[in-house]
Computed example of a mutant assay.
Amino acid sequence: MVTHPPHRAGVFATSALVLTLLALPTRASAQEVFTPREDIPDAHLRGVTHVVCVTFPEGAVPEVPVYERRALGFEPAGSVPRARTVPVSRWVDPGGSQEDCFPAFEHERLNHHGVSVRYAHVMLDVRSGRKAWLGEGGADSPTATWITIESLRTLEAFEDRGIEFRRLLREDSLLIVREEPRHDASPVELNFHDGDFSLGRRIGDYAEVLDFNSYTEKYYRRGWVRLVDARGTLLLWPANYPSHGC
């Protein structure tokens, strides 16, 4: 496994989903599926602050525990069946755990009996826009649902993951890699089919694209891409095994 550099910031089974079968290096049955970009209103990807992923271990009850926001904090408010959610991406592994990842728009950290707990306002259906509060972590059980909340501001959401450079782009949009993190910087040619890419620093709306060279065991900057567009619409998404638009 590649060890990523410090600060490196570097995918629901419904009829509306497009299934992408990937040539995976381990379990051939594992699949990563995405909600088609045309099914996601731009407004539902605008102002995203975190990526929240819900992991369902083998044997887990397919439900997402939700919370209600109260004056003094958050209280459990039941659960939402997984079948009623529409995430941006879903990792499906018949022989292991499943993972659904959603955009989140607010984040709070509270102290419970001396333990810091984070909560996020998550869009559980990226088509309809339905949201709920989720809490980080899970019960102490090997079959308990587990929830992670990771920041886009610091690019934490891309750590130890691949990058989907094209899945959130509209059909009429172009992915442009630039020499500097500016809209007027010169474009750079980059073949996304050939490289071990991760994200480095974030400057403004741009993220640094790094490529790991296995011979030198070093990371090299290949350019900068927009993380969000001029209206704040999210353009990149973390992936378990990115297709790079294939």
Score class of each variant (00 low, 15 high):
His113Ile: 05
Leu134Asp: 02
Val88Asp: 08
Arg118Tyr: 02
Thr145Tyr: 00
Asp100Leu: 15
Ser79Gln: 05
Ala144Met: 09
Glu106Gly: 11
Val61Lys: 13
Val51Asn: 08
Val126Glu: 11
Pro36Lys: 12
Ala43Met: 05
Ala104Arg: 10
Pro76Trp: 06
Ala43Arg: 15
Thr35Ala: 13
Ala144Val: 07
Gly129Asn: 09
Trp133Ala: 02
Ser89Ile: 12
Ile149Trp: 02
Pro65Ser: 02
Ala120Leu: 07
Trp133Asp: 01
Arg109Trp: 05
His113Pro: 01
Ala83Met: 09
Val88Trp: 09
Val61Gly: 00
Glu58Thr: 04
Arg69Gln: 13
Ser141Pro: 08
Ser89Asp: 12
Pro36Cys: 11
Leu134Arg: 02
Gly135Glu: 04
Tyr67Lys: 04
Phe34Glu: 15
Ile40Trp: 07
Val122Asp: 03
Glu38Gln: 15
Val54Gly: 02
Trp91Cys: 07
Asp42Leu: 07
Val88Met: 14
Phe105Val: 12
His44Glu: 09
Cys101Gly: 10
Glu32Leu: 03
Pro76Leu: 06
Gly129Leu: 09
Val64Ala: 02
Asn111Met: 12
Ala43Cys: 04
Asp93Leu: 14
Asp93Ala: 14
Asp39His: 14
Val48His: 08
Gly137Pro: 09
Gly73Met: 06
Gln98Ala: 04
Val64Pro: 07
Ala60Pro: 08
Arg127Val: 15
Val51Pro: 01
Val52Gly: 03
Val115Lys: 14
Val122Arg: 06
Val51Ala: 11
Phe74Glu: 04
Arg70Phe: 03
Tyr119Gly: 02
Gly96Trp: 09
Arg130Asp: 14
Met123Ser: 11
Ala120Asn: 09
Arg46Glu: 07
Asp39Pro: 00
Pro94Ala: 10
Gln31Met: 11
Ala71Asn: 13
Pro94Ile: 07
Gly137Gln: 04
Arg84Tyr: 11
Val115Gln: 14
Met123Glu: 12
Glu99Asp: 10
Phe74Lys: 12
Arg37Ala: 06
Tyr119Ile: 05
Arg90Val: 09
Glu136Arg: 08
Arg46Leu: 00
Arg69Gly: 05
Pro142Thr: 03
Pro41Tyr: 01
Arg37Gln: 12
Glu99Gln: 14
Ser79Pro: 01
Pro87Val: 05
Ala144Gly: 06
His50Phe: 02
Pro76Lys: 11
Pro94Gln: 10
Val117Asn: 04
Gly129His: 12
Thr35His: 05
Arg118Lys: 13
Lys131Ile: 00
Ala144Ile: 03
Glu106Met: 08
Glu68Asp: 13
Glu32Gln: 13
Pro87Met: 05
His44Thr: 07
Val117Leu: 12
Glu38Phe: 15
Thr145Leu: 00
His113Asp: 14
Ala83Asn: 04
Asp100Cys: 09
Ala71Pro: 12
Arg70Leu: 13
His121Phe: 10
Gly73Arg: 09
Val122Trp: 04
His44Ser: 08
Arg82Trp: 06
Thr49Ala: 04
Glu63Tyr: 01
Cys101His: 06
Arg127Cys: 12
Ser97Gly: 03
Gly135Val: 00
Val61Ile: 11
His121Pro: 03
Val54Glu: 01
Val126Phe: 11
Cys101Lys: 10
Leu134His: 02
Pro81Trp: 02
Pro94Met: 06
Tyr119Phe: 15
Val33Leu: 12
Leu152Pro: 07
Val64Phe: 03
Arg130Trp: 04
Glu58Trp: 00
Thr145Gln: 08
Thr49Lys: 11
Gly95Thr: 03
Ala120Asp: 04
Val126Asn: 10
Cys53Tyr: 03
Arg127Asn: 06
Arg84Gln: 15
Pro36Trp: 13
